[in-house]
């Protein structure tokens, strides 16, 4: 019986000495060195404004770094055309308050964009693929005809995530995917991300505010603090009370706030 060790997994993304600043002299990220392996789940934790979103946007190739290199499959990410990169990476933003007037169906059909030629118009074949896919995510078929802006924030988030998954990219990058979801949908999304990693060989990267999610999904956790990596390693090793104190501040774990914490380790 062969044991597949984590180190044997292909390194898909390699980040070396990355730094980024919006304005000169105000670095948002510094000295970031990171490796993202194939078929892993990677969670970024950290305070608001610590640089998590900027970092994952850089990884997604949607921002240009100030210094350092990001290699996607051993090739600098800026050398990829948008089409080529989109076959590797699908990005789900945090903000879904964009007044999208497409229907759910019209939006999901756009996930096929990078697989079709320039003159493509959606076909019934494409539509059937969409219908088959949304069954897995517990999205009703009658939702297909609703406009995106008619859905609640959480429902819209699920659709956008579905769109990214439908894109069939190897790496899915999500910015706080569970932020506006109710408990049922949170678990549905987390469960589906885990399934994608295990059964569909996807690599998942997402930022999160709840260390519980990171623990539940296993994988790796990377903690960002003041634009630098504070901890990185397996979630079970990183997510401990003393580390969380360093990431979020003393008050999170001790004294008056500790009664609100429910941190458990359960198999998902």
């Amino acid at each position: 019986m062969e044991l597949t060790d984590k180190e044997d997994n292909n390194c898909l993304i390699k980040i070396e000495n990355l730094s980024f600043e919006y304005h000169k002299g105000e670095p948002v990220l510094q000295d970031i060195n990171l490796e993202i392996n194939e078929n892993t789940i990677n969670v970024f934790l950290g305070l608001n404004g610590c640089g998590k979103t900027t970092l994952i946007k850089l990884i997604a190739g949607l921002q240009r770094q100030t210094n350092g290199t990001i290699l996607l499959n051993n090739k600098p990410i800026k050398e990829y055309s948008d089409t080529a990169r989109s076959k590797y990476i699908a990005y789900v933003p945090q903000n879904t308050n964009n007044n999208m007037a497409f229907t759910v169906e019209e939006f999901l059909l756009l996930s096929f964009t990078n697989q079709r030629n320039l003159l493509w118009q959606p076909t019934t074949d494409d539509l059937n693929k969409v219908k088959h896919f949304i069954k897995n995510l517990d999205i009703d078929e009658d939702k297909l005809q609703k406009k995106m802006c008619e859905l609640s924030g959480g429902e819209r988030q699920i659709v956008i995530i579905a769109g990214a998954l439908l894109q069939d990219a190897k790496i899915i990058i999500l910015d706080e995917p569970t932020a506006s979801l109710d408990m049922k949908n949170q678990y549905a999304v987390l469960h589906f991300l885990k399934k994608c990693q295990k059964e569909n060989d996807k690599t998942i990267i997402f930022t999160c505010h709840d260390p519980n999610h990171a623990l539940r999904l296993g994988g790796d956790t990377i903690a960002i603090h003041n634009g630098k990596i504070l901890f990185k390693g397996q979630s079970r090793d990183i997510i401990k009370a003393k580390n969380l104190k360093k990431i979020y501040g003393e008050s999170v774990i001790d004294s008056k706030y500790s009664q609100y914490n429910i941190i458990t380790l359960e198999d998902f």
Partner: peptide
């Protein structure tokens, strides 16, 4: 089908989808 509809999604999403 391929370009115009994705442009309507804005720069970030259009690029994420490959346009």
């Amino acid at each position: 089908g391929k370009i115009l509809n994705n442009i309507a999604l804005g720069e970030e999403q259009a690029r994420s989808k490959g346009v």
